[in-house]
Amino acid sequence: MRAEYVEITSEDELRALLGEPQPRSVAKERSRLHEMDRRWLAAAPFCLVATAGADGTCDVSPKGDPAGFAHVIDDTTIAIPERPGNRRADGFRNVLANPHVGLLFLIPGRTDTLRVNGRARLLRDAPFFDEMTVKGHRPQLALLVEIEQVFHHCPKAFLRSHLWQHEDWNPDAVPPHPEIIKSVQYTAESLDELREYYGPSYADRLYTAPKP
């Protein structure tokens, strides 16, 4: 630790610096889905899933599908389908060791979010899997989350970042994905091959399992 760093090492220090939360911020926590939560989940096409392994190492994985992809089973249980991906399964391996998960559901253009925390299990099949079929793809597994805490989060972070303000977008600030891959890791494919793989046809393969 650098000598000029001033570290916070206790909750008392933290509270002395930040102060106490507003009563409204504390009271908004619930343990069951409200009808407004259900409406939010029905409109959300994207969420971030945070997990931690038994040793405390963390992972955040993005999940996206058509709006309403989070399947509501009842007021305390939801399920998130898994689609073909890179097979790393970092978050899923964490869940097997530590079931605690945190979910953040986003609706494009909205600056507020829905947070869901709970305990997760991995399912390889269930009757509701048929309802999560997209473009003929029935998920091979799903993350079942038993809700312990749910609440809507304020818009400050999105407002500060101008996340949805198109005039502030700068997607060309960093090179395209194929160039990033080629520069940060070894790949047998050439840059041209990576450009072709991640080209326009990439979107056509979103629900097709990649070759081993």
Rank of each mutant, 00 (worst) to 15 (best):
T208C: 03
L206H: 02
V6Q: 11
A173L: 10
S183R: 15
D90I: 12
N98G: 06
G118I: 12
L191P: 12
P84N: 12
E4S: 12
Q22L: 14
G68F: 11
K182N: 11
Y5T: 06
V134E: 05
L191R: 13
A44L: 09
L144I: 00
S190G: 08
R124A: 15
Q185W: 04
L194T: 05
V101I: 15
Y207G: 02
V184E: 10
T111W: 07
K28R: 15
L144A: 04
D125S: 14
V174I: 14
P175C: 01
P45Y: 04
L159C: 00
A50S: 15
L114F: 13
E4W: 11
Q149M: 12
H100P: 05
L206R: 14
A16V: 04
H100W: 10
R110I: 01
K211P: 11
L123I: 00
C154K: 03
V26C: 00
A188Y: 08
I107L: 01
C154D: 12
E167N: 02
H100Q: 10
D125L: 05
L14N: 10
K63I: 13
F129S: 10
D65I: 10
G102W: 13
A79W: 08
T51V: 09
H152K: 09
L163Q: 07
F128P: 04
L17A: 06
V60C: 14
P62G: 08
A52Q: 04
E4M: 08
H100S: 13
Y202P: 03
T133V: 15
P212V: 15
H100F: 12
T208S: 13
L163P: 00
V134R: 08
G102T: 03
N94S: 06
R121P: 01
P175N: 03
Y197K: 10
L194S: 13
L104I: 15
